[in-house]
C-alpha cells in the first residue's frame, strides 16, 4: 500500500513538474515536487523507504527533465532520501517548524549535491547562485510544509472516520 501511495505521489509530482515547466519555463526549476515526495517518504517511512522513493522519483525526473547524463538526479535523491530517513528516525520531526527546517535543508543539499555530482562527472549544467539556492530552498520548504499539512489533514480525517 505504501508503495502504491508513493508511486501515486511520484506521478503527481511528475504532473506538477510538467505543468510548471510548460507554464513557467524559467521558474520551473525553482520548485521540485519530487524532492517534496522524497522528503515526505523519508520522514514518514524511514531510510529504506526514503531511498527507494528517492531512486524512483530521481529516475522519473532524470528521464523527463534530466540532462545528457541520466542518473544524477536519481543518485542525488537516493542520498537525500537516505539522509532524511535517518534524520526522521533519529529526531522527532513533527510540526511545522521542524518540517520547514528539514525541507529547507533538504532542498539546499539537493541543489548543492546535484551540482557537485555534475561537476564530478564533468556534466555541463547551469549552476545556481547561493541566492538562487536560498530561494529554491525557501520556496520548496514553504510549499512542502503546506503540502505535508494537507496530506496529514487528509490522513487524520480518514483515520477519524468510523
Amino acid at each position: 500500500m505504501k508503495a502504491l501511495w508513493t508511486a501515486l505521489a511520484i506521478l503527481g509530482a511528475l504532473v506538477v513538474q510538467s505543468a510548471l515547466s510548460a507554464s513557467l519555463p524559467s521558474q520551473g526549476r525553482i520548485l521540485d515536487p519530487f524532492l517534496l515526495v522524497v522528503v515526505y517518504c523519508g520522514l514518514t517511512g524511514g531510510e529504506i523507504h526514503g531511498m527507494l522513493a528517492g531512486v524512483a522519483a530521481g529516475w522519473v525526473q532524470d528521464i523527463h527533465f534530466g540532462g545528457p547524463v541520466a542518473g544524477l538526479s536519481a543518485l542525488t535523491k537516493l542520498l537525500l532520501g537516505f539522509g532524511v530517513g535517518v534524520a526522521g528516525t533519529r529526531f522527532f520531526i513533527q510540526g511545522t517548524a521542524p518540517r520547514l527546517l528539514t525541507l529547507f535543508t533538504a532542498a539546499a543539499v539537493d541543489a548543492a549535491l546535484f551540482e557537485r555530482l555534475a561537476m564530478t562527472f564533468d556534466v555541463p549544467t547551469s549552476s545556481l547562485s547561493p541566492l538562487g539556492i536560498l530561494a529554491r530552498a525557501s520556496i520548496n520548504a514553504l510549499v512542502g510544509v503546506a503540502a505535508f499539512e494537507l496530506v496529514d489533514l487528509r490522513r487524520r480525517r480518514q483515520e477519524a472516520r468510523p
Binding site: G46, E47, I48, M51, V55, P68, V69, A70, G71, L72, A74, L75, L78, L79, F82, G85, L117, F121, D122, V123
Partner: peptide
Amino acid sequence: RSRLLLAALVVSHLVVIGHQV
C-alpha cells in the same frame, strides 16, 4: 540492511552514470 542497500544503490548509480560519461 539499509546501509547495504544504500551502498548497492550508490554503486549501481555510479556505474550507470559512469557508463554514460
